[in-house]
Write a protein that binds this DNA or RNA. Structure first.
Length: 993
RNA sequence: GGGCGAGUAGCCGAAUUGGUAUAGGCGCGCGGCUUAGAACCGCGUUCCGCAAGGAGUGUGGGUUCAAGUCCCACCUCGCCCACCA
């Protein structure tokens, strides 16, 4: 047998497969389709990354397995080639980005092909190809025409280095996501896409798709839907309550949004965002107007960085002369402006409940505002037949020793606790606490420092063997001196009195209630925010209700309404850059004037539908889409003129004013208006990188179509994508954006399904050796080329699948690669042992179990255990003198998706003229999975004492009898009769005395 | 501060979802083969103990005949988001 020469073998088969066109998708096939998608790479100058290899190999394995299962598989690849690194490189070297892109894609293609990935290379797409971005532009025009693209002057994040506007999502810790440079706020007219109009559908439709749960959670968090209430607070001139009869000016009411209407009785002040419009209207009422204006001006100047750099210190100014009425209890409460309230979220105004919101608490503490507790916490789990009680938990702290007093009741009675006990008839909580402390520990000289709110606690009292529901009060004492009285004898026996370090106590106190009290007093969690299961206090007729029930009732009571809000913002779609899709719009002053006049005359409301607008404007003989009405003067480039190609420019640097380099190409910018024929100028902003990747999966289906983004019938047949795998870093932005585009395309009838991806999974990052991120600057990037050269593509594929759980981050380890390599060498040596007629029933069982395991592992993306199963199987086969040829062939079929070249080579060496990849995926025989004899563990009181071997069919009674007959079992029973004997079929026997 | 996830051998990690903890790989040790080395093959490899036995999955509790797995609390690390009411 020839040795394993990976270079020769891999080159040979890659060439053969390519000549055969074996992985090109066959549109005429009658087999059921299966569409597998991986995130297409950004072809950077650094070349392929080990992370690409991980994701692409994983779905390559799925693709190859699906083909063996009789599916017609589409597994395409392409290039997401617009983007900053290429452009920055072009600026530096004065090379056209298109040239750089071609060089990089050539390199990537070579690298991907060297891995034996079964991509259909005939369907390659490239986002920078005019034939491709023609349709990116077309989609943008549809957004525009439907009024979902609009120009808006906004404060944008501006990267000083890149000279580019960034979406909020692209600013990380106040720095630019791409270059890491500092950012500032700048005002700029930007094209926006109204993704918020799709917020509810993007949220709700997650229920209809099969995404990993963590991905759904991240998407939902990003959309940030929160249900709450809008409640109106009437503003009045201060002193309203006292002068009820006196005439007071009628001031406006202010709507606030809150997720916690149940805490309304605890609202002790109100806060407006500094840019809230109403402030201006209140000018005449506000006595300290100058101060308020000064504050507003200062906060406006602050950039986001300055605001965060300042730390958590809250600032604000009270509006003197204006107060608000709390609609729940009619109390008059002060009104503040403060920058911790955001204009963009909710209504830009809040009711502040310092007792149950951390930010409100901080603010209240600084400005001396009242804190009113209206929610009492609930701890523990309710049990049956609870006995009701009122009791206390006393936390005694010795400031000299810096220790807290605990009682150790031992394991059986509930571990370490503070001092606790019930109230006696007519006793106050303080008196009860002092009594309990004296009785249990003897200490008598104590100072009461603080008292908690009532805590509703459910627990099982081990000492009395009874379930209890108690209303407990926490009391915080400080020890004044060591004076002690004698304690009861009973107390001395039951528990140990110990002074322990607070840290230690916080870690080891066993009971939830005691933890709560500890956190309150020792960790100074003075406010308490009990989202779930709290009980209302001090809230009028609502006192005693649960938080959950009170939300709706209180909202109704004050005439508010339940409302849904989202965190998601509209998408800033303009970039002041060269290397992106030109936005196909022109600006025409003449048309702008027309629209202004039109607006005056017809007095219509925005937005109105396209149809409606046509009718309304017919008299004026003007046809306009919603986009034009929304953005006066902006006219779309006719679809017949697409693609609007990027012109050649000599210099790629953005202008100092922040405009795209395109603005300097005079003969491109100056054009005629497609609508009125007058002079017009082109939009010089380009689209963000996310644009091209928002629909590429559609183009793969029909990559050369010049009449539509893809043929409808083909879309109907191929969509949705059956399985999409990509990085966790794209689960919020790319995934959400592309779902948004797809839903829009569905709405305008361009695609036949409302969700693009049926199933989405995510792989974990590959870290450098030592657990750090791989990065060029750290010089720890692993180049797949080197690994392929020394060990071979199959070894690299196996290693990356084996290195750890697919969905988790794992560190690269050069040393460990030899494991999979040795495995393959062993398989090559073993091939010589494969003989006709060498049958082995024991091996057959192992083989069938492996078929089952490997198959299931691939479906669940547990590639690491699948590879481990291969190793076990190989070890077992290799331990024999001879292996049945059929069994070895089955093994090769299982291995084929993972190590396609090695499997193909050995398959050929066995004398086959056809490809192993054309074989059917092996099926396992349920009957052969079972073992004849099984090992059963025997436990005595939870400890394994013996192991017996019994027939798999042995009845329960026999197994139990055998177990009890074991000498070691008998010895540990020590003559006692077993109280119970439990048999878990095929697993163990548990004997309990 | 919030959300999500993770903590198992010297290291990467398994554990059929509550049923014999540590499979597989790396590393290490011993032995074989070899002039020698590499490669390869075999055996061993959680800790304490001569053994019987005992301890053991970040920490403290709980539920259970039985807990790495479920519940409560805490600690540490990672990722994502953060003045989102």
């Amino acid at each position: 047998m020839e040795p394993y020469d990976h270079t020769k073998i891999e080159a040979k088969w890659q060439k053969r497969w390519e000549e055969e066109g074996r992985y090109e998708f066959d549109e005429k096939s009658s087999k059921p389709k299966y569409y597998l998608l991986v995130e297409f790479p950004y072809p950077s100058g650094e070349g392929l990354h080990t992370g690409h290899v991980r994701s692409y190999t994983a779905l390559d394995i799925v693709a190859r397995k699906r083909r063996m299962e009789g599916k017609n598989v589409l597994y395409p690849i392409g290039w997401d080639a617009f983007g900053l690194p290429t452009e920055n490189y072009a600026i530096k070297t004065k090379t056209p980005p298109a040239v750089v892109t071609r060089e990089n894609t050539d390199n990537f293609r070579r690298q991907l092909k060297s891995l034996g990935l079964s991509f259909d290379w005939s369907r390659e797409v490239n986002t920078t190809d005019p034939a491709y971005y023609k349709w990116t532009q077309w989609i943008f025009l549809q957004f525009f025409k439907k009024g979902l693209a609009y120009k808006k002057k906004t404060l944008i994040n501006w990267c000083v280095d890149c000279k580019i506007g960034l979406a909020n999502e692209e600013v990380v810790d106040g720095a630019c996501e791409r270059c890491g440079g500092s950012t500032e706020k700048r005002e700029k007219e930007q094209w926006m896409l109204a993704i918020t109009k799709y917020a509810d559908r993007l949220h709700d439709d997650l229920d209809t798709v099969d995404y990993e749960e963590r991905i759904k959670i991240q998407q939902r968090n990003w959309i940030g839907r929160s249900e709450g209430a809008e409640i109106s607070f009437q503003l009045v001139a201060s002193g309203f309550q006292k002068n009820l009869k006196a005439k007071t000016k009628k001031l406006p009411a202010i709507k606030v949004f809150t997720t916690r209407p149940d805490t309304l009785f605890g609202a002790t002040y109100m806060v407006l965002a500094p840019d809230h419009e109403i402030i201006e209207n209140l000018k005449s009422e506000i006595k300290n107007w100058d101060e308020v204006v000064r504050y507003i001006v200062v906060t406006k100047k602050k950039t986001e960085i300055e605001r965060t750099a300042e730390g958590k210190e809250k600032t604000g100014v009270r509006l003197e002369g204006v107060t608000a009425i709390n609609p729940a209890n009619k109390e008059e409460i002060p009104v503040y402006v403060a920058d911790y309230v955001l204009k963009e979220y909710g209504t830009g105004a809040i009711m502040a409940v310092p007792a149950h919101d951390k930010r409100d608490f901080e603010f209240a503490a600084k400005y001396g505002l009242p804190v009113r507790i209206v929610i009492e916490p609930v701890t523990g789990t309710p049990l049956e037949n609870e006995e009701k009680r009122t009791s206390i938990v006393a936390l005694v702290y010795d400031p000299k020793k810096k220790k807290v007093l605990t009682l150790d009741w031992g394991k059986a009675l509930g571990g370490r606790l503070f001092i606790g006990g019930g109230l006696e008839e007519g006793e106050s909580p303080e008196a009860a606490a002092r009594r309990e402390i004296r009785e249990e520990t003897g200490y008598v000289n104590l100072k009461l420092v603080a008292v908690s709110e009532k805590i509703h606690h459910h627990y099982f009292a081990h000492s009395k063997k009874v379930a209890r529901a108690i209303e407990a009060t926490g009391l915080h004492f400080e020890l004044l001196d060591d004076a002690k009285e004698e304690t009861s004898l009973e107390a001395n026996e039951k528990f140990k009195v110990e002074w322990v370090d607070p840290e230690e106590a916080g870690r080891t106190v066993a009971d939830e209630l005691h933890h709560f009290v500890f956190n309150k007093f020792m960790r100074h969690e003075l406010y308490s925010c009990h989202e779930e299961g709290g009980i209302l206090a001090d809230s009028g007729t609502f006192t005693g209700l649960s938080s959950e029930a009170a939300k709706k009732k209180i909202t109704e009571f004050v005439g508010g309404n339940m409302k849904v809000t989202y965190k998601l913002r509209d998408w800033v779609f303009s970039r002041q850059r060269y290397w992106g899709e030109p936005i196909p719009l022109v600006f025409c002053e003449h048309c702008e004037q027309c629209h202004k006049k039109l607006k005056e005359i017809s007095n219509f409301q925005f937005p109105i539908s396209e149809k409606e607008s046509k009718i309304k404007n017919s008299k004026l003989k003007i046809e306009a889409s919603e986009g034009e009405l929304l953005n006066p003067g902006w006219v779309p480039v006719p679809e017949s003129e697409l693609p609007l190609e990027l012109p050649e420019v000599g210099v790629y640097t953005p202008t100092d004013s922040g405009e795209s380099p395109l603005s300097k190409v005079k003969n491109w910018v100056e054009t005629t208006c497609p609508k009125c024929g007058g002079t017009a100028v082109r939009e010089t902003d380009t689209m963000p990188q996310w644009a091209g990747s928002s629909w590429y999966y559609l183009r793969y289906i029909d990559p050369h179509n010049d009449n539509a983004l893809a043929d409808k019938k083909k879309l109907e047949h191929m969509m949705p994508v059956d399985w999409y795998n990509g990085g966790m870093e794209h689960t919020t932005l790319h995934l959400l954006y592309s779902r948004f585009w797809h839903k829009f395309l569905y709405d305008i009838g361009a695609v036949p399904h409302s969700e693009p991806y049926r199933k989405r999974t995510s792989h974990g990052m590959i870290l450098a050796e030592g657990g750090e991120k791989m990065s060029k600057s750290k010089g720890n990037v692993v180049n797949p080329d080197a690994i392929v050269e020394t060990y071979g593509a199959d070894t690299l594929r196996l290693y990356e699948m084996f290195m750890g759980p697919f969905e988790q981050a794992v560190a690269w380890s050069e040393k460990s690669i030899v494991g999979p390599r040795r495995f393959l060498e062993r398989v090559f040596k073993m091939a010589g042992k494969a003989k006709d007629g060498a049958r082995d029933s024991e091996l057959e069982g192992t083989l069938h179990r492996a078929i089952k395991k490997v198959g299931e592992d691939v479906e669940r993306m547990r590639f690491n255990t699948a590879v481990s199963e291969f190793m076990i199987l190989a070890n077992e086969m290799d331990a024999r003198e001879a292996i049945g040829k059929g069994e070895f062939e089955t093994f090769l079929k299982l291995l084929a998706p993972f190590a396609p070249h090695a499997a193909e080579e050995l398959w050929a060496r066995l004398g086959h003229k056809t490809s192993v990849h054309d074989e059917a995926w092996p099926a396992y025989d349920e009957a052969k999975l079972k073992r004849a004899m099984i090992k059963i563990a025997v436990q005595v009181n939870g400890k394994v004492r013996a192991e017996i071997e019994v027939s798999a069919e042995a009845p329960e009674s026999e197994v139990k009898a055998r177990a009890l007959a074991e000498p070691k079992v008998a010895a540990h029973l020590a003559g006692k009769e077993p109280a119970r004997v439990i048999y878990v079929p095929g697993r163990l026997v548990s004997v309990v005395t």
